[in-house]
């Protein structure tokens, strides 16, 4: 595989980019990409630093939950970075809800890290807002608008009409290498030697 990768190189004479023009990526796509990578980063952090996170939030004992959320974040990230980005972003919004609900449980008065939880909540709320904006943007940019599609009923492709076209190319001889095995040929077409096979 190293060979394959190193062998992919553009050939010398091929045109080179002098300067770049407008891209097919819109602002909504770039935002989805940023949020997708944010998910991946957060997911990895939750997986490898679960203990530090729970300690900072006064949620000791919830490491498994944080790691599970980390895996969930990776999922959001992968989908957000795919061409189904709107699904990924809406899944992030749902995930934000879960994060908020979980943090709320740590907003107890007896939690000495209550201030940290408050900061975390504010951050999640901010990100939630971005996620909603991103999800709406991606949905708007990539969905098929409702309403009547164009009618293409007149587009036969046959200048002389469909009826005249049926079988009009029967003069065409299918080359021998493209003949189907005669398995489904018309029954009377069977080769004589097959019909007259002695028993």
């Amino acid at each position: 595989m190293t060979y394959s990768i190193s062998n992919i190189a553009r050939s010398k004479g091929d045109p080179k980019v002098l300067h770049s023009g407008p891209s097919s990526l819109g602002a909504a796509d770039r935002m989805a990409r940023a949020l997708g990578w944010f998910s991946i980063g957060l997911g990895v952090t939750e997986l490898i630093a679960a203990r530090r996170i729970t300690r900072a939030l006064g949620m000791e004992g919830k490491e498994a939950l944080v790691r599970a959320y980390g895996i969930r974040e990776l999922g959001h990230g992968i989908v957000s970075l795919s061409s189904d980005k709107h699904l990924g972003l809406w899944s992030r919004v749902a995930g934000d809800g879960l994060d908020i609900a979980t943090l709320m449980t740590a907003m107890r008065h007896d939690n000495p890290k209550r201030d940290n939880v408050g900061i975390a909540l504010a951050a999640v709320l901010g990100v939630t807002l971005l996620d909603i904006i991103g999800a709406q943007g991606a949905t708007a940019r990539h969905s098929r608008p409702r309403g009547r599609p164009s009618s293409y009923r007149g587009r036969t492709g046959f200048p002389q009409g469909v009826q005249a076209a049926r079988g009009a190319a029967k003069d065409f001889k299918v080359p021998p290498d493209m003949r189907a095995a005669p398995a489904l040929a018309a029954v009377s077409d069977r080769a004589p030697q097959e019909r007259a096979r002695p028993h």
Partner: peptide, 18 residues
């Protein structure tokens, strides 16, 4: 020319002539 820059990123670029 329409140039591939990455996933979902195609741009109308100015490039050298072949």
């Amino acid at each position: 020319a329409l140039v591939w820059h990455g996933k979902e990123d195609i741009r109308c670029d100015t490039v050298t002539d072949p």
